[in-house]
Design a protein around this nucleic acid. Structure first.
Length: 642
RNA sequence: GCCCGGAUGGCGGAAUUGGUAGACGCAAGGGACUUAAAAUCCCUCGGUCGUGAGGCUGUGCCGGUUCGAUCCCGGCUCCGGGCACCA
């Protein structure tokens, strides 16, 4: 493999680094770990830019560092092999060695070069620069671990306080100078075996001696600024977004190259540039577009001279960065977005996707939204108010994938159990943001449940045909109890689905309701017909989101009108769901000893005396001093005795 | 190395605001029905001591705060994920 330099197009996402970072603290509907990943990706760090004068050169070398407190210990300089100064400052005697090193790096695969175990290597250029504080002459090296893409591509090397520099210095026998001493220990440059990178007390640092190294950062920044050799800066890890791809499938980048006018954007009226259909896929390297003359040749929009189209296409992340905006007005033909409709629909209330999009897609979509906001297309700062990252399907302890061969055949499942069963299981097994453990026995259980529901509905049909609407006033006894269960279930299922997307507990609530309904007797008493009917129809409607096909069938059986998808969600009646009495647990010294039943709305005093009088509590209080009684109305009483 | 998650029965998971730990389901064991099996139904099901009533104990480990901690705080262990020669 050989690295090639290519001219590419970039989006200047770095202009938005600060805002993208800032808003990570203002998206309460996003999972914390996604925000953390984005923060790390953006990678803001505070430090200093410091310029080191170069022997025999007008211009010095500027470095970025977060450790200006260690500047007194800088004993050499490291540049990225690609650094623009490298070539120029290399002395004739060193030229051969430097060239060999640069070529070797160019041949090294980037992934391997950046692996941690990769040995620190470098070459001296023959040049020297000067430490602006100590006046010490520092040899300038090229080093394989210095990255041109980060900071300024140049690093002041402080072997005593940076592990990489330490290893490098030991290898090339460069002096190590300690400028920070840890508390209760004295470092000796001659015997140190690793760099000391923590906070400590400064030494060998002139007027800063004795200062805590963390506090000294600020002082040194000011000091350097005063000397005119440095300034405080902020650096980001985030790079600009390279969007050029040398492949056919993608949106052509709308640029025309003219020998006279340079790179000219395709005029708005000619947008979008569409992919030609008559390309030949030869399997040769490079984009097939580059070999298609009819696509390539185009007059320059400015001067009319024969010009060439850009043949690179855009990264597919470009499209996924704004499709949700286009979805607000997909039929709009006057431009990319119908502003008023985009304003109406945005932001997306709930966005769902896999965790694998935590940085790239989700960061790019945020970036696009901000750019389009600044261009006046949308009115929102952020595209997605709430984000749910769903888990993967796990089977036999591994992510389900074709290559691992641990996939479940959906056709077999559908054939054997039906799609509803498979769907029910995957919703029931875990909340959506968690990985889901696939279990064939679990699927079997879901199937059994559906069969029970089916049987229950059919058995109940004769008793609910022609039943009236429930009259809450006339309900008594078991009918009233059943109705309470039904309305409590509606409340639970509704809350679980709407508030938290916890479909697993919503389904559990439906199962519990089915259990009560199955146990309900007598079903054939005509005075229970109305309550039963309400129960069964509510059940069928609540099952619809999870098992739509079965629910639709049952809906027809219970005499429901129209399609279930059009039927309103059942509403619960708080009065019907309200208990008449509550179970209150009684603790003595924090240990559960008894349960008592109190009417709803019982006062604290009533609850308290009932608890103190409870059968199994009284013996425990005998001969003891009552120290404290904590009453949580409707829940618990804790009696503290000593 | 740094940063984030997480750890609850044999298993997947509940417990929404500090207040009954283990909902719901799976698996397992026992029973009913059956000539038999499947299916279905009923019962048991954290550990431990006890014939029993019941006691003790228990949410990765060690401490703390509190009348009360799966939940809050401090210190660890292990697992998962992200980033990583980032100066």
């Amino acid at each position: 493999m050989k690295q090639k330099e290519l001219d590419q197009w970039f989006f200047r996402i770095t202009d938005y680094a600060e805002e993208l970072l800032d808003w990570t603290n203002r998206l309460p509907g996003w999972p914390e770990r996604v925000m953390t990943m984005q923060r790390n990706w953006i990678g803001k760090s505070f430090g200093c830019e410091i310029t080191f004068p170069l022997d025999g050169e007008e211009e010095g070398i500027t470095v970025f560092t977060t450790r200006q407190d260690t500047l007194y210990g800088a004993t050499f300089m490291s540049l990225a092999p690609e650094h623009p100064l490298a070539e120029r400052i290399t002395t004739p005697e060193r030229r051969e060695a430097v060239t060999a090193f640069v070529e070797k790096i160019a041949r090294t695969d980037r992934v391997r070069r950046t692996a941690e175990e990769f040995e620190k290597e470098g070459v001296w250029t023959g040049a020297f620069c000067t430490n602006p504080l100590t006046g010490c002459r520092m040899p300038v090296y090229l080093a394989n671990f210095v990255l041109m893409e980060y900071g300024t591509g140049a690093v002041m090397a402080v072997p005593a306080h940076d592990q990489r520099d330490f290893e490098f210095a030991r290898k090339y026998e460069i002096p190590v100078k300690v400028v920070i001493q840890p508390d209760g220990e004295v470092l000796d440059p001659a015997t140190m075996t690793a760099a000391y990178t923590e906070v400590g007390s400064m030494v060998n640092s002139d007027k800063f001696n004795g200062t805590r190294s963390d506090a000294a950062k600020e002082l040194l920044a000011d000091h350097l600024a005063g000397m005119g050799v440095g300034k405080k800066t902020v650096n980001f890890r985030l790079r600009d977004w390279g969007i050029s791809r040398q492949r056919y499938w993608g949106n052509p980048i709308p640029i025309i190259y003219c020998d006279l006018c340079g790179a000219v954007p395709v005029p708005d009226v000619d947008l979008p540039v569409t992919l030609p259909k008559d390309v030949a896929f030869t399997g040769e390297g490079g984009s097939p577009l580059a070999r298609l003359e009819s696509f390539l040749q185009v007059p320059c929009p400015l001067c009319g001279a024969l010009a060439r189209r850009e043949t690179d296409t855009m990264d597919t992340f470009v499209q996924s960065s704004w499709y949700f905006l286009r979805y607000c007005s997909p039929d709009y033909t006057e431009g990319a977005l119908d502003k008023s409709r985009a304003e109406y629909w945005m932001s997306v209330d709930q966005y769902i996707g896999g965790i694998e999009h935590a940085v790239l897609h989700l960061l790019y979509a945020r970036f696009f939204t901000k750019v389009l906001r600044d261009l006046g297309y949308v009115a929102v700062d952020e595209p997605f108010t709430n984000l749910l990252t769903q888990g993967m399907v796990i089977k036999d302890g591994a992510k389900m994938s074709k290559s691992k061969g641990n996939v479940v055949d959906p056709n077999g499942l559908v054939e054997r159990y039906g799609a509803d069963t498979a769907r029910l299981f995957s919703l029931f097994a875990a909340p959506p943001e968690k990985d889901l453990d696939w279990s064939d026995q679990g699927v079997e259980g879901s199937y059994r449940f559906l069969n029970r529901v089916w049987k229950l509905v059919y058995e109940t049909l004769p008793f609910i045909k022609g039943a009236a609407v429930v009259d809450p006033e006339k309900l008594t006894g078991e009918g009233k109890v059943l109705r309470r269960t039904v309305h409590k279930s509606i409340r639970r299922v509704t809350d679980d689905i709407e508030g938290r997307f916890h479909f697993n507990t919503a389904i559990a609530a439906v199962m519990e309701m089915v259990n009560s309904l199955s146990a309900f007797e007598p079903k054939n008493d005509p005075k229970n017909g109305a309550v039963l009917r309400e129960a069964v129809t509510s059940l069928v409607i609540m099952l619809a989101p999870f098992v739509p096909h079965a629910a639709e069938e049952l809906w027809e059986e219970v005499g429901g009108a129209g399609s279930l998808s059009q039927v309103p969600w059942p509403s619960f009646d708080p009065r019907a769901a309200a208990d008449e009495e509550l179970t209150v647990v009684v603790q003595v010294n924090g240990k559960l000893r008894d349960r008592i039943t109190v009417p709803v709305g019982a006062s604290e005093e009533e609850t308290r005396s009932a608890a103190l009088a409870a059968e199994r509590v009284r013996p425990l209080l005998e001969g003891k001093v009552l120290r404290k009684v904590v009453v949580v109305p409707g829940k618990l009483v804790n009696i503290v005795v000593g």
